[in-house]
Write a protein that binds this DNA or RNA. Structure first.
Length: 512
RNA sequence: CGGGGCGUAGCUCAGCCUGGUAGAGCACCACGUUUGGGACGUGGGGGCCGCAGGUUCAAAUCCUGUCGCCCCGACCA
C-alpha cells in the first residue's frame, strides 16, 4: 500500500491529486488556476499528440498556427459565441510596464482596443478564412492547430479544468452542409477510435442537447467517458458550426452555380483534460497506471545485488535482456548516452521514443519498485542473483500485479510487443465492463433520481429535450444530459419527465 | 462571485488561548552499516511565522487591514 497516496474509497478527490503528485505529472503554478506540466505528464500529452496528429493527417488535415491574441471586437461578431465565452476571457489592455510616481511598476500604454487571449480560435480563423476562400475550388479548407488557450475558470482542478490548457483545434470550411456534417462525424469517429484504441477508455458517441452545446454551434457532438467515481467526463467535442461563423466573418465563395454562398464550417478539439481522463480511468490506490500505448517507459528493470561480484553478474544478465528487447544497435547507441550509474534508457520504439529503462541508481530495490509503480510503467522486471542462476527473470505487470518468471531465452522485442498489446486490451476491456456495470436504465423521474443518488454512473432513459427541465433536473439531482447517444438516435419513447411520447434516448450522469 | 476553513522549513503540521532567542516528523546533503516491496545510525543544511500597519520594553502569538490557498455553491473543454 502506497503511503503517500490516499485510497479512492477514503477520498477520491485527494487520491486524484496524490496520484498526480506521486507520479510527478504536474505542479501548481504561482498563478492561480494555472499548472506546470512536468516531464512525466508532458510525455503523456506528447503520446496523445503523436497519435492524434497522425490521424488528422491521415484524414487530410494540415497544421498551422494562429495567434494568441484576438481583437476584442472579433468575439462580439457571433452573438451566441460572445455569450458563451465573455465571462471567462482574459483581457489584455496595456502594452507595457512603467515606473509610477511611487517608483513601483504599473501597466502603461493603454491599448486603443483591448485584446483577448484566445479562449478558442473560431473568430481569428474565421477572419483569415474569409480572406483565403474565394471560390468553391478553394474548398474544403482542413486546418488544425496545436496550441494553448485560456479560460479564466474560477474553480480549477489539475488537468480537468485549468485556466490555461493545451489542446488542438481543428477548423474546417466546406461547400455544403452535407460536407460539413460528414467532416464533423468523421472527426468524432477519429476521437472515438483514438480514445478506445490508444487511451483504452471506452466512450459513448453522442449529440449534445441545446443547453450543453458549444456557444455558436448548430450541433455539438461529444465522446463521453465514465470515470471510476461514477462521474462522466467529456473527452472531446466536434461541432458543426453551420453558417454561423461564415456569416459573422463573411466567409463566402463563388459556387459552381455562379452564386455567392456562405461556407459551412466545423471545429473539433481535445485538450489536456484527456490526461485527467487517463489518470482517473485507469489508476489504482498504488498510483498511476498507464496504457502501454501512452506510456513513455514500457519496462523498468530493477537490479538486485549485494556485492560487487553479484552486481557484475546481474549487470551482464540485464544487458543480455535489454539487447534481446531493443537489439544490438540500439544497445550500443544507448550505451553512449548512458554513461553514468543512474537510470539508463534504451529506445524500444525509435518512432514513438518509448523506452526500456534500467534503474542503476544507488537506492534500495524496494524504493525503486515503488518509484516505477507509481509512475504507471506497464512492466517491471526484477533481476537478482537467484534469477541469473536460473537464467530467468521476474516479470511484474502493473495493471494487476500479475507475476511471472520468464526465461531470458524467451525474451525478444516481439515477445514484449505481445505482452504490451495484451495489457492494452485488458485495460480497455476492464473499463468497458466497468461502464457496462455502471450504466442503468430509468423508466421514471423518481428512478432517475434514485439511480443517480445511489449508484452514479450513466443512466439511460427517454427524455424530451427542454432547457427548463434540464436545469430543474440538474438542480435536483446534479446530473445533466451527457448526450443523446448516436447508436440509439432514432429510438423514440415516453419522456420520464414530461410524459411526451416522442422523447429520445439520452444518457444522464453527474459530470466533471 | 457568495458561505466556511487555513496561511509557521520543500511537504504535513505543533506552538498562538495565557507575548519573552523558531519546533517535530517526513523530505534533502555527507559518511557508515544495509539492500528480493518504502532500512538504520551519526552528523549537517534549510524559516522576514503570507504581507502591511498598530499595541508593547518585547509580537508567530494581541488588534486592524490586505493578499493568497483549500472546501462547499453559481459558471465551465
Amino acid at each position: 500500500m502506497a503511503k503517500n497516496i490516499k485510497s479512492r474509497a477514503e477520498d477520491y478527490a485527494q487520491w486524484y491529486l496524490d496520484v498526480i503528485k506521486a507520479a510527478q505529472l504536474a505542479d501548481y503554478s504561482p498563478v492561480r488556476g494555472c499548472m506546470v506540466i512536468r516531464p512525466e505528464g508532458y510525455a503523456m500529452w506528447e503520446a496523445i499528440q503523436r497519435d492524434l496528429d497522425r490521424r488528422f493527417k491521415e484524414t487530410g488535415h494540415v497544421n498551422a498556427y494562429f495567434p494568441l491574441l484576438i481583437p476584442q471586437s472579433f468575439l462580439t461578431k457571433e452573438a451566441q459565441h460572445i455569450e458563451g465565452f465573455a465571462m471567462e476571457c482574459a483581457v489584455v489592455t496595456h502594452s507595457k510596464l512603467e515606473k509610477g510616481k511611487d517608483g513601483k511598476l504599473a501597466p502603461g500604454g493603454e491599448l486603443e482596443e483591448p485584446l483577448i487571449i484566445r479562449p478558442t480560435s473560431e473568430t481569428v480563423i474565421g477572419h483569415m478564412y474569409a480572406q483565403w476562400i474565394q471560390s468553391y475550388r478553394d474548398l474544403p479548407v482542413l486546418i488544425n492547430q496545436w496550441c494553448n488557450v485560456m479560460r479564466w475558470e474560477l474553480r480549477t482542478r489539475l488537468f480537468l479544468r485549468t485556466a490555461e490548457f493545451l489542446w488542438q483545434e481543428g477548423h474546417t470550411a466546406h461547400e455544403t452542409g452535407e460536407d460539413a456534417q460528414s467532416e464533423t462525424m468523421k472527426m468524432l469517429e477519429v476521437y472515438r477510435s483514438f480514445a478506445e484504441d490508444v487511451l483504452a477508455i471506452p466512450v459513448v458517441k453522442g449529440r449534445k442537447t441545446e443547453s450543453e452545446k458549444f456557444a455558436g454551434a448548430d450541433t455539438t457532438y461529444t465522446i463521453e467517458g465514465l470515470m471510476q467515481d461514477g462521474k462522466a467526463l467529456q473527452c472531446g467535442t466536434s461541432h458543426n458550426l453551420g453558417q454561423n461563423f461564415a456569416k459573422a466573418f463573411d466567409i463566402k465563395f463563388l459556387g459552381r452555380d455562379q452564386k455567392i454562398a456562405h461556407c459551412h464550417t466545423t471545429s473539433w478539439g481535445v485538450s489536456t483534460r484527456m490526461i485527467g481522463a487517463l489518470i482517473m480511468a485507469h489508476s489504482d490506490d498504488d498510483g498511476l497506471v498507464l496504457p502501454p500505448r501512452v506510456a513513455q517507459n514500457l519496462v523498468a528493470i530493477v537490479p538486485i545485488y549485494k556485492t560487487d561480484e553479484e552486481k557484475a553478474k546481474v549487470a551482464a544478465f540485464i544487458d543480455r535482456t535489454v539487447k534481446a528487447l531493443v537489439g544490438e544497435d540500439e544497445f550500443a547507441a544507448a550505451s553512449e548516452r548512458n554513461s553514468r550509474d543512474e537510470i539508463r534508457s534504451y529506445f524500444f520504439d525509435k518512432i514513438t521514443h518509448q523506452r526500456v529503462v534500467v534503474d542503476w541508481r544507488d537506492a534500495r530495490p524496494g524504493d525503486k519498485q515503488f518509484h516505477w509503480e507509481q509512475r504507471g510503467v506497464p512492466f517491471r522486471f526484477e533481476v537478482g542473483p537467484r534469477d541469473v542462476e536460473q537464467g530467468a527473470l521476474m516479470v511484474k505487470r502493473r495493471l494487476d500485479r500479475a507475476k511471472e518468471v520468464v526465461k531470458v531465452d524467451a525474451i525478444s522485442g516481439e515477445w514484449l510487443r505481445g505482452k504490451l498489446a495484451e495489457v492494452q486490451k485488458l485495460m480497455f476491456e476492464k473499463n468497458l465492463k466497468y461502464r457496462h456495470d455502471n450504466t442503468h436504465e430509468a423508466h421514471s423521474y423518481d428512478e432517475l433520481k434514485k439511480l443517480i443518488a445511489e449508484k452514479g454512473g450513466f443512466v439511460r432513459c427517454y427524455f424530451k429535450q427542454d432547457k427548463a427541465a434540464e436545469a430543474k433536473i440538474k438542480e435536483e439531482t446534479k446530473a445533466t444530459v451527457r448526450c443523446i447517444p448516436l447508436d440509439t438516435d432514432l429510438k423514440r419513447g415516453k419522456c420520464i419527465y414530461s410524459g411526451a411520447d416522442d422523447a429520445q434516448q439520452v444518457l444522464f450522469a453527474v459530470a466533471y
